[in-house]
């Protein structure tokens, strides 16, 4: 846990802001929910969410000064969340059902650790790492053909929204602290990212509908090369 408790040296609490933090965790959970549709996977995700809720409660208690109780509760939350991986390994029927969701269950937990925050100095790292785990699980799901196209694309967009909201929570917290009213900006920012995500998914679906199987090989090579070059060029 970050050692600054209720307030920092300068008397201002600079934790990640609440609304964006909530959006980040919910979007990460949504991404996993879109991938895992069997009952075992849903059960594991439920355990995961319960663990995150307990972690959030423990974090709140810790930051209000109840160090011992808060710390123990938070630790229990993390434990419960980690147990969800065990749930999916034991309960899922096929290997692909396990593989496509097990790493992803760590995603929301890591994002939550970043915005509670468990260790303020590494908040951004936690959030990025959490998003990376969700992306990994989306790729695995695509590889084992576990999910349909729309849920897969949706899950990916949701992951970007989760990362974006988590980072926004952190930088708003750093600049304005937690006493300031920041929710309109948080809602506006994440709303815009989500809408853009929908546009991106629609574009991908449109691209899919173009049906590139009839295209000559040279054309495909050129398209892919152009994509790589443009991505590097857009590197921000």
């Amino acid at each position: 846990m970050s050692g600054d408790g209720i307030s920092g040296v300068d008397g201002i609490t600079r934790h990640p802001t609440r609304v964006s933090s909530l959006v980040a965790v919910c979007a990460a959970v949504l991404a996993i929910a879109l991938l895992g549709t069997t009952s075992a996977q849903r059960l594991a995700l439920g355990v995961d969410v319960a663990g995150i809720a307990v972690l959030a409660l423990g974090g709140a208690a810790w930051h209000r000064g109840h160090r011992v109780v808060g710390g123990l509760v938070a630790l229990a939350g993390v434990g419960l969340s980690l147990a969800s991986v065990g749930v999916v390994v034991v309960r899922a029927e096929t290997v692909s059902q396990r593989v496509e969701i097990a790493p992803g269950l760590l995603g929301p937990l890591l994002v939550a650790c970043g915005v509670v925050p468990v260790w303020k100095r590494f908040s951004r790292t936690f959030v990025s790492l959490g998003a990376a785990f969700v992306v990994l699980t989306i790729c695995l799901s695509g590889l084992v053909r576990g999910a349909e196209m729309l849920p897969l694309l949706g899950a990916f967009a949701a992951t970007v929204v989760a990362w974006d909201a988590g980072e926004q929570a952190i930088n708003l917290g750093e600049q304005l602290g937690n006493e300031a009213r920041t929710w309109p900006v948080e809602v506006g920012h994440s709303g815009a990212t989500a809408v853009y995500g929908c546009v991106a998914v629609a574009a991908a679906v449109g691209f899919h509908d173009l049906d590139v199987t009839g295209v000559p090989l040279v054309g495909l090579f050129a398209l892919f090369g152009a994509a790589v070059l443009l991505l590097v060029g857009l590197y921000n």
């Binding site: 196209m149 694309l153 995500g197 991106a200 991908a204 691209f207 899919h208």
Partner: peptide
């Protein structure tokens, strides 16, 4: 196809 969504966000 996920790369298309990623490129859009880029």
């Amino acid at each position: 196809l996920l790369g298309v969504v990623g490129a859009a966000f880029a």
